[in-house]
């Protein structure tokens, strides 16, 4: 009996190490390229590409971190992501609350409508959305706002879906108690329900933040047509390896710089991400 248990444990350990390796390997490759010397690439197929960094150097990092354009783009990405989170939470959380609390006949239709926008392929919906932003009265909005508004279309269904699950876990008793004690619906929502729901809602906010930070298609189509030179980081990265002979060290370095904040972020918020999924996912 005991021996069998150990065997299971060993298999489990091996599997977990293999899975971690599968996840980390590409990230390692990126890291390796980013600190390799440029010359290592030019050998081009003659020798095997080394698995270890060739003459490690932080040259490229120094270059990007001193580049104002990089910082400008990074700042834009951050602004977009935060604005998207704000829009999605402010609009999505109250709607999710009402959808979870009130029983009315059109509820299913409303939820379906909110989620159904995700049926459109991004590449199909980006054209009308970009067109609307660039032709209508919205033209004069700053690019940050335009992109954030577009990302909110993608993020809102997630927030509504997750937040609805979170609100359903909060007992109605709390609000009824507050109501009896004299609180208005709005007061009960902002002072009782929201604070209790906050950890769960954080999950929604985190997903939307990641979504916005990582999003490429909408960012690309909306900013490509504007004359401003500041663009979100994913678009900036694409512009690098879209060239005919991309410089791998440069691509890898920028890739890592774009990913690093979200990688660190994930380590801090993984607990919320798990609990958010538990609240919203399976039903």
């Amino acid at each position: 009996m005991k021996k069998k248990l150990n065997k299971e444990k060993v298999i489990w350990l091996i599997m977990i190490i293999l899975c971690m390796a599968a996840v980390i390997f590409p990230i390692y490759i990126m890291f390796k390229y980013s600190i390799s010397d440029r010359t290592s690439w030019i050998t081009g197929g003659k020798y095997p590409i080394p698995w270890w960094p060739n003459k490690p150097t932080f040259e490229m990092y120094k270059y990007y971190l001193a580049d104002t354009r990089f910082w400008g783009n990074a700042f834009m990405s951050l602004q977009i992501a935060l604005l998207t989170v704000a829009i999605c939470m402010v609009i999505g959380a109250p709607a999710a609350y009402s959808l979870s609390r009130f029983k009315f006949s059109a509820k299913g239709v409303l939820i379906f409508l909110i989620l159904s926008i995700r049926l459109f392929p991004d590449i199909s919906s980006v054209i009308p959305v970009a067109y609307t932003f660039n032709v209508s009265f919205l033209y004069n909005l700053p690019p940050v706002v335009k992109v954030a508004l577009a990302h909110s279309v993608l993020g809102l269904p997630y927030v509504v879906y997750i937040a609805q699950g979170v609100f359903e876990t909060i007992p109605v008793d709390l609000e009824e108690q507050a109501t009896i004690m004299g609180a208005s619906k709005l007061y009960a929502f902002t002072r009782i329900v929201l604070p209790v729901a906050l950890p769960g809602l954080a999950a929604g906010a985190i997903y939307v933040f990641l979504l916005s930070w990582n999003e490429f298609v909408f960012s690309y189509f909306i900013t490509a047509t504007s004359s401003v030179s500041i663009i979100p980081l994913p678009v900036y990265l694409k512009s690098l390896f879209g060239a005919f002979s991309p410089n791998p060290v440069s691509v890898a370095t920028l890739s890592l710089l774009v990913s690093l904040p979200v990688i660190l972020f994930t380590f801090f918020v993984q607990k919320y991400m798990i609990s958010g999924a538990t609240a919203g996912a399976v039903k």
């Binding site: 709390l174 009824e176 009896i180 009782i192």
Partner: peptide
């Protein structure tokens, strides 16, 4: 809130 009542729930409903 204007009925002059107070209630204790089965779940206590403590905040």
């Amino acid at each position: 809130k204007d009925r002059g009542i107070a209630m204790v729930f089965q779940s206590y409903a403590l905040f």
